[in-house]
Structure formats: C-alpha cells, structure tokens
Simulated scan of single mutants.
Amino acid sequence: MSVEIKVPSVGESITEVQIGAWHAEQGKWVAQDSEIVELETDKATFDVPAPLDGIIVEILKKTGEMASVGEVIGYLEEAERPADQAAPAPEKSPEKAAAAPAPKAEAPAHAGGGSDDRVMPAAARVMAEKGLSPADVTGTGPGGRILKEDVLAHQGGAASGNGAFREEEIVPMSPIRKKIAERLVEAQTNAALLTTFNEVDMSSVMELRSQYKDLFLKKYDVKLGFMSFFVKAVVDGLSQFPQINAEIRGTDLVFRNYYDIGIAVGGGKGLVVPVMRNAERLSFAEIELKINDFGQRARANKISLDELQGGTFTITNGGVYGSLLSTPIVNPPQSGVLGMHGIQERPIAVNGQVVIRPMMYIALTYDHRVVDGREAVVFLKRVKEALEEPARMLMEI
C-alpha cells in the first residue's frame, strides 16, 4: 500500500514551503515517526515524520524546490524492515537528550560520517563523490576552510592556492532569509528609525557573576550569563518608559503592561528571534534556562512558529561575534531594539582618576513615531544604571 507524503499545514499564514534536505533516499526503508524530510518556511524549519514503516518509493520534490501546503512531495510503500538493515538506534532519555549538546545545523556532510564547519558546501559535495574526509584535504580558504578547488587539487585537478581557479556558486535564498530581508527593508521604509548610544561599566555584573557562578550552576544546572542581567535591566527600563514597549496599530498606539522580550539567536538557517513571554515574571535562573533552550533548539532548527511571534521588544548581542558597535534594526511592529556589544578593557575617568574598566557600548534603535528622543536617551541611561548598580533593580529605585 502506497501512502502519500504531503506538506502538512504549519500555520494560518503559511501556504508554501521550501523543500530542505531529504533524510531518507529513494528506495530506502524508514521507520515510522522517523524524520524523512526537512521543510523550511519564512519563520522556521521543521521535519516531516514517516507515517508508517516502509520504503521511499518516489520523491517528487527535490531539495530547494517549493511546494504548497497539502501538496504531495513523495510516496511511501508500507513494508517491514529488511533483514540486512540495522535497527534504528534507541532514542535518548529526555534527561540525557537535554544534557547533550545540540548538533550544529547545516554543517556539510562528507564521507567521514561526521560534519566539519571548515568544509564549504561545494567542497563537501566533491568530497562525498571522491570518498574523502576533511582530514585528507588541506584547506586554503579563510581560517583554513576547505574550498572546492582544494579538493580538486588533492585529486590532481586545478592548482590550489594560486588564484587560477575561480568559480561562483548560486544558491537560492531560503524562505527564512527572504523573510529576514523583507522585514529589514520594511523596517527601514515604514518606520522613523533613530539610534542612541551609551556605554556600561560591566564591573559590577562581572563581579556578581564571578561570586555566584558556581552556586548558580550547582543549583540550576545552567551557567549565569550576561543576558539575564540585560533582560532584567530592560524590563526595568520599559516599566519606566512604556512608549518603548508600545506599537502603532492603524491610527492607534497600543501600550502593554507585560513584557515579551525577543532574544536574537543564531540558528541553522539564519538569525531567529524567539520570544520570552512575560519576562517580568521570570527569575534569573528561569531567564538563563530559556535562553539556553532557545540557543540549542535554534541551532537544531526546532524553534516553533508560535515562539517567533508577538514580541514587544528585542535584545540582540553582536558582541558574541566580536562586534564593538552597531546600529540594530527594529523588528516591526515593535518600537525598540537594544544592541549589546563586546566587552573591552578601556581607560575611563572615575572620581578624577584614570582607571581601566571592562566597558560595553550599548545601542537603542527606536521608532521616532512612537518614542521621543528624550525618552529613548533616558531609557538607555536607566539600563546603564541598572547594570552598573544591579541592586537598584531589586530596590526599584
């Protein structure tokens, strides 16, 4: 009996998906509920499970092609597992699965059976054809990355490293990347964006982390990071200046008494911003646990569509990538986004003396249609003060 493999409904506003990687080849047997194909939308990536034990008899849509919701993309023939095929590995227990590090998404496959971030996609395909692994090839790209010409040179093809081999690779934009581009242009076109800056002496936060990090880790089984301090400081500032937590809806301004904070994290398919609901009710430990969970699931492309919608303010941390200063872009229809940056020891004046302190530049981009300049500047100053004297957040002063 043949069973249709269809694109399931993934949300009211989504009518089309892009076919990602097929986890099972045509002619291969798959177990019921095992992931057989990855689908990408403009908001998230998800996998389609096999409806029953059987063999993939036909694949109608290849990787990179588009398909409509409800469209048939393949056929599965019901069959028992062949005697010569090993049984699938047992699933990890929830406790072990949570503790295991999330796999990095989109790492190219190769003959060695694992993945390597140094291998570029074109090189990975040639390596798979030639039966090579990254250990066999010397990379000449930036940071030792392995390029296609490196693989060909290893096989006696074009000379590597002399600049004689030049090529371009055309890759279709994923739905997520298209949506990111669309929303960034929308923000710059429809909003009156302005950015204000300040700098924070991170000494107090770093001292608190150093003092309590071991106890925190022991009690909550998660590291105490910087982001929980920033979430707390932002919620404190938003409570003082509600315009920055508001949005324009038609000809009205909508104010909220809750704070749903979007946390920008790097995912397998690009930057995603899952939302931390009711951040004002969360403890430091609850914030850190959610951030850790967001990061793991974003890398594995497991963030759900609901988690990406409805934020009231966003925090993004370019410092983890080495950024010293930037102007973040508001995520519409929100009215503000806070940018964190790298911490650097710099000389500053304190009580008439020049001292060396760990300093971070922070940036607030806001929609000037909703937020006045004075409110934006004082809000950012409030965030700065809360981070430099964390006790003020507890005392609400």
Rank of each mutant, 00 (worst) to 15 (best):
S2F: 11
V7E: 03
V7M: 06
H23Q: 14
I36K: 04
T41S: 14
A44L: 04
P49L: 07
A50V: 03
V57Y: 00
K62V: 04
G64Q: 12
V72A: 09
Y75R: 14
E77K: 15
E78I: 10
E80M: 10
P101K: 13
P103Y: 09
S115M: 11
D116W: 01
R118K: 13
P121R: 06
R125W: 07
E129L: 09
G143T: 04
R145D: 09
P172I: 06
S174M: 05
E182A: 11
A191T: 02
L193P: 03
N198G: 09
N198Y: 08
S210G: 15
F230I: 02
V234P: 01
I248G: 01
D252I: 04
D260K: 06
G268A: 15
L271R: 01
V272M: 06
E280N: 12
R281L: 14
E288H: 08
D293W: 04
F294A: 03
L305E: 03
L308Y: 01
Q309T: 08
G311V: 00
T316A: 02
S323P: 08
Q334Y: 07
S335C: 07
S335A: 13
V337K: 01
H341P: 08
V350W: 07
Y361D: 04
Y361T: 08
T365W: 03
H368F: 10
V377D: 00
V378E: 11
R382D: 00
E385D: 15
E385N: 13
P390V: 09
P390F: 10
M395G: 05
